[in-house]
Design a protein around this nucleic acid. Structure first.
Lengths: 348, 348
DNA sequence: ATAGACCAGTAGACCGGTTAACTAGAAGCG
DNA sequence: CGCTTCTAGTTAACCGGTCTACTGGTCTAT
């Protein structure tokens, strides 16, 4: 069998190329790196040999010497979540533009798994790590990463850690969303979903409370429900809310995914989002505009977030001592049908 | 600045560990690979040194010698597509289970970009490549990959190429879908979406035609529309279809994403899927069941596909000379609301 | 007593590139 | 003409592991 499916043919190395071109290994290497020191004639001989032998450059071998792998690790909770998928897509394309490869790994929101994955990434010798830390990640662990490679954090902000990070403007987005609901006449507004430990959720919850109080509305803890970030989480939460003695008439949701669950839960309860009940999400994933009814949501450009994370990473690699940057992507409310009907007449 | 954000601290190597433990580099290496030849006492000394120095194993260096990188490349059109996201997720987790890392790259359905990416992957020295080739990919190019690493193809089947591949059962899924529509009384059934060059689309189109003819229905070329695999593609296609002198009353769509676009197009035209018009998708992405109305679709388990691709890859790496495998994942029709109302009375 | 097996560990070549330091020959220069 | 400078390469150490072949010592069998 001359060429079996998985047989790795004996590698053609730079040495083979050099011999074929009658030059030293060093010269061949210089040709490949476009070093002007080599004459046109010699260069051509080497390039011809490369073609003739079908030589493939071995970045892995080179990186051993250069201490640069041109590889960035991306660690997220899961890819199937549309927000993460967009973020991944943005990061991948920004990195690919600069000839960096993306190594992807998922934590499933499991701290122990995250620890394992970080270790693997460091062993794979990535130049940098873009990490959306799972809840409960210690600052120490992040500090440790930074002793081995560059680090860019996505989402949570760790105070007291000199790391670049990207995030959305949770505060401003939340204020806009909650004020809009109040302006529409809603007063019993629930805050739905997200892991209780998540620092992102805590920031949004905080802004939610501030905004309500600022408008003279009392905060009811029974209306604040945490949950996994899944449709199921939103579904169950709204079920719980509707069973309250005084149920809310609006929900500001931790994410679009939660909001979809809430809308499904409303439908199951015979209610309709945008008519009987106002729903706002967060993220503006592609589905948000296409859902029925379309979802009012805080637009946060996950793709842009991924691109920005990649940019910060490339900058950090280029100048390790540059001052830390904390890039907050602006967010703004996109009003759609899920909040369309004002509730000025209803006593809720 | 003792520990700047991106500063790479001087690496602790195996040599440092060995010196600290008063053994040779070779012994330290043997300890790390759990070689029983080393006594418990020595082993412990080495492990202590590892801890004390904060040593991190360098897989990259090792792979130079072992010719194994424990890295698999995944090349797909784009991650943001939910089908691809699920596939990626499945592949990643199956590979991670066996301590393989996933390097992700996207082609945006651009042949030239695919060529560049394949080259980069080979230079990164991946152990294998899982590839969903863009339309127009030459068998030669694939053959060339196979001279450097293991290859698993996702989706198209290249005849005359001895490569493992995974795919869905396009034929059976299509037959089920079209027969179901006919059984519901539909006779003018459109085939909507997908790139004309795609071999997957050609297989489905073929089965669609066969099924219609088998039921004594004439195939109308005007009802077969190709398009990009986006919602926009489906939207535009259905617009075109509704403007025909004899518009169809049902659409069998190339993918769920197309079907969503079709449903949006119907809504824009004042029609409702599942009532005025039957819509069937392909893939059964998570959104399908949650859309309104929920989408009847051919379930194809993209996550399972990704897992299977990973399995085939691991098997191929383990035994390069194993016979080629062509794994067709069964598909079946999941009936939901988008086709719920039979159209037995309408003369279409 | 002695050959052979076994044990615990070591020396050093090796993987495939990069790069600092060196060199032979040609050109420049007063 | 002799000295420096430049050009176009070459040599060999190096990156951080792995692994084959070897060693010196102890144990067992004859």
């Amino acid at each position: 069998m001359p060429n079996a499916p998985g047989r790795r043919r004996k590698q053609v190395t730079l040495k083979d190329v050099a011999e074929a071109a009658n030059v030293s290994k060093a010269t061949a290497s210089l040709v490949l790196s476009n070093n002007p020191r080599i004459s046109a004639a010699t260069r051509q001989r080497v390039l011809d040999a490369v073609d003739a032998l079908g030589y493939v450059y071995n970045q892995r071998a080179a990186s051993l010497r250069t201490q640069r792998s041109y590889t960035i690790g991306l660690i997220i909770t899961d890819v199937s979540n549309p927000f993460s998928a967009e973020l991944t897509s943005g990061a991948e394309s920004a990195l690919a533009d600069q000839d960096y490869s993306l190594v992807l790994a998922t934590t499933d929101d499991d701290l122990e798994k995250q620890t394992r994955i970080i270790r693997t990434m460091l062993e794979r010798d990535v130049d940098g790590l873009i990490l959306g830390p799972v809840a409960g990640t210690k600052t120490d662990a992040l500090q440790n990463i930074m002793q081995h490679c560059s680090l860019v954090l996505s989402n949570p902000y760790y105070e007291g850690l000199a790391a670049d990070c990207v995030g959305m403007d949770d505060e401003n987005g939340t204020v806009q969303a909650v004020e809009y609901l109040i302006q529409q006449g809603r007063r019993r507004i629930a805050f739905v979903g997200g892991y209780a430990t998540s620092s992102t959720r805590q920031r949004r919850l905080h802004s939610y409370r501030d905004t309500l109080r600022g408008q003279g509305i009392q905060v009811d803890p029974a209306l604040c429900i945490d949950s996994p970030v899944t449709r199921r989480g939103g579904y169950d939460a709204v079920h719980q809310l509707l069973n309250l003695a005084q149920p809310p008439s609006a929900a500001y949701c931790y994410s679009d995914v939660i909001a979809f669950g809430v809308m499904l839960g409303l439908r199951a309860a015979g209610l309709e989002a945008g008519k009987d009940f106002a729903v706002i999400g967060f993220d503006d994933v592609p589905e948000a505009s296409l859902w029925h009814p379309s979802l009012t949501t805080v637009s946060a450009d996950p793709r842009g977030l991924g691109e920005m994370a990649a940019q910060l990473m490339l900058r950090r690699i280029a100048s390790p001592d540059a001052p830390v940057r904390r890039e907050i992507m602006p967010s703004h409310l996109v009003v759609r049908d899920s909040t369309r009907t004002p509730l000025s007449s209803l006593s809720d």
